[in-house]
């Protein structure tokens, strides 16, 4: 029976979606003993909820401070222990930061940003995008200890069931030597509370076709109705119409939502690199030649300023019914 350790990220109360997906992957591995690692303020409360995902043991670190590489790496090392273990985490900014260092400490291989996983420790196979999604590689590892980070939204979210209360193993906050200490001086929150693009289920995205910064106002009602995140092409960012935080594509965010609605985006290869793995793609563009239509599932060839308001109304009606 193999041991799977899932790093569970949370905001003090709720478990992040990507982590829930990782818990789902852990549960799908036949006969696995699923353990979890929870770090941060409110860790104990979060730990208690994890039984519902089939977690039998939680390593909890009650910690007040901001994210710190050394703390997370140290805690994960303690939780992993000495034996064979498959360590899973959603490919978030935290995991991106500590997972490679954990790999060095545990002297075990790591693979990142995967979209499929099969097999079990000793014979695990993963699939991951390379060349910005222009190809997929399948990799196999026979290692008994392994770290795997999962692309957010690439895996289904499990139903929370009624498992019993997990065993809690409290871990003391690891000591970090001075030479390795990183200190967060300030947290810069974005002006508005936008939904994070990488985890969004629905993204409404605007390109050069929106015509100017005010063009994004046309997209806002739709974004609100759908509970979507707002994306943009690089061209709109370069034009200064919207902040780079919204950029989807090769040099922006890589996203895989259920629904991606591209409004006035031509679909340059660099943009497609960031969104082509979306489950359903809708393109609204005046230009019938726009390459975006090649990868879209549905398209309307028309002026987005006419389509989007009517589309929004229609969606609102469906949602209401």
């Amino acid at each position: 029976m193999s041991r799977v350790l899932v790093y569970v990220e949370h905001d003090g109360e709720a478990i992040r979606k990507g982590s829930r997906q990782a818990l789902g992957v852990a549960a799908s591995i036949g006969g696995a003993q699923v353990e979890a690692l929870v770090i941060g303020k409110g860790a104990a409360g979060v730990a208690a909820k994890l039984g519902a995902y089939g977690v039998t043991k939680v390593h909890a670190v009650e910690y007040d401070g901001a994210y710190a590489t050394g703390v997370w790496t140290g805690a994960a090392q303690s939780a992993a222990g000495d034996g064979d273990c498959l360590i899973l985490a959603s490919h978030t900014s935290f995991a991106r930061d500590f997972a490679p260092r954990l790999g060095a400490r545990l002297s075990c291989p790591q693979v990142s940003d995967i979209v499929e996983l099969s097999g079990d420790l000793g014979g695990i196979e993963v699939k991951r995008p390379i060349f910005a999604g222009k190809a997929f590689e399948t990799l196999k590892s026979e290692a008994g200890r392994l770290i795997v980070t999962l692309r957010p939204n690439a895996f289904a979210e499990p139903e929370a069931g009624g498992g019993g209360a997990p065993e809690i193993n409290e871990i003391a906050v690891p000591e970090v030597p001075a030479a390795l200490q990183t200190t967060v001086i300030e947290v810069l929150k974005p002006d508005t509370e936008e939904i994070d693009l990488t985890e969004a289920d629905v993204i409404v995205s605007g390109g050069i076709g929106v015509g100017g910064p005010e063009g994004f106002d046309t997209l806002r009602p739709l974004q609100k109705t759908l509970g979507a995140a707002l994306g943009s092409s690089r061209a709109a960012v370069l034009a200064g119409w919207i902040s780079p935080d919204h950029q989807v594509g090769q040099t922006g965010k890589t996203v895989s939502p259920q629904l991606y609605i591209a409004c006035g985006i031509s679909g340059a290869i660099q943009h497609r690199a960031g969104m082509s793995s979306s489950k359903c793609i809708v393109a609204i563009n005046k230009d019938p030649q726009a390459p975006i239509f090649e990868i879209a599932d549905y398209g309307i060839v028309a002026d987005l300023f006419k389509v989007v308001p009517a589309f929004n109304e229609a969606i609102a009606k469906i949602k209401a019914s």
Binding site: C108, P109, Q110, V111, E125, K127, G133, K134, A135, F136, E137, T138, L139, K140, S141, A143, L146, S276, S277
Partner: peptide
């Protein structure tokens, strides 16, 4: 740690 067993275009 890993060996490539497959490669495919989307």
């Amino acid at each position: 740690g890993f060996t490539r067993t497959g490669l495919a275009l989307p």
